[in-house]
Nucleic acid binder design. Sequence first.
DNA 1: AATAAAGACTACTTATCCAATAGACTTTGT
DNA 2: ACAAAGTCTATTGGATAAGTAGTCTTTATT
Lengths: 145, 145
Amino acid sequence: MLSKKTKYAIKALVALGKNVENPPMQIVRLAEQEMIPRKFLEQILLDLRNAGYLYSKKGAGGGYSLNKNAADIYLADILRITDGPIAMVPCASLKFYRKCDECHDEKTCGIRKTFIDVRDATLQVLSRTSVADVIARENIDDLLV
Amino acid sequence: MLSKKTKYAIKALVALGKNVENPPMQIVRLAEQEMIPRKFLEQILLDLRNAGYLYSKKGAGGGYSLNKNAADIYLADILRITDGPIAMVPCASLKFYRKCDECHDEKTCGIRKTFIDVRDATLQVLSRTSVADVIARENIDDLLV
DNA sequence: AATAAAGACTACTTATCCAATAGACTTTGT
DNA sequence: ACAAAGTCTATTGGATAAGTAGTCTTTATT
C-alpha cells in the first residue's frame, strides 16, 4: 500500500499542475483544497522541492509551483522520494538494492526472479505515467476500464 | 514491500513443494532449514492450512505437506492471505476494495485509474506464477535478466 | 494405558515506523 | 517594522508487524 505521504505528494503535484497558469499556491490553500494536514503537507512539499520538482518562494505572495513540466514528472520518481523502493523485495530493487536477510543464494533465488518481473511490470506503468497523464485522465470517461 | 510473513510463507511453500516425494515435514525442521523463527512459522503455516493450501498431521510422525499441486498454488493468492490487498491503493483493489479517505470523486480520479493499471500489471505476473514456477526458476540460469 | 511427539490456538510483548503536531527560525514584500 | 509566507528539526501518539509464550489437542508407539 502507498503511504499517505505518497498519496498526498501525488495529489499536491496534480493540484500544482493544474495551477501553472496562476501565481504560486500557498501551503495552507493547498492543504485545505486537497484535505491534507497542513504541517504534514509542509514536509512533503519540502522533500519534493529538495528533489528538484518544486519551486518555492518565501515571504508575502510566495508559495509553491512546479519546477518542471508536468509531463516530465513521473510517478515512479515521486514514489521513490516519498516511499523509497518500488520493488516488493529489497533484492529486486533497481534504485534501492539491498540483500535479503534470509537469502541463501541470490543467483538462483526463484522468488527474486519472480519479483524482478513484478517490479518491471510495475515500472512499465509508473515510469511512463506523468503528472500530466494523471491530470488528463481525470476528465476522460475511461471506456477501457 | 512484502512483509516477512509473506516471504516466509512463500519460502515455506517452496520448501514443501520440493518435499512432495518425502514424508511430511515438521515445523521445526522447516524453520531451521529456511531460517524462520519457529513460532512465527507456526502461525503462518496455520493460516495457509486454514486457507486450504496445506495438509497437516498431528502427533508423532506428523508434519506439513502441500494440499494442492505446486503448479496450482499462485503467488497472488498467497500474498492475499498473508499481506491482504495487492493493489497500492484500497480503491484499486479487486479483492479488498475500500474507498480512499481523501477521495472526492472516484469516477474521475486519475490516480485511481493509474493504480488500477499498476494492479493489473502486477497481477499479470503474480496470478500466473505458481510455486512450481518459482521452484523451476531456481535452477535455470536466467539469461534474459 | 502411558508417554512422547507432533500440530492448534490464543494471548501477549516488543519494536518500528507512519502520520501528525509543535515551535522556533528565515526570507521577502509592503 | 511587520506580516506573510516557507524552512527545518524535534517530538508525540498510535497502529501494526514481528516475534514469543504457554496451554490444549491429537496421534503413534510401546
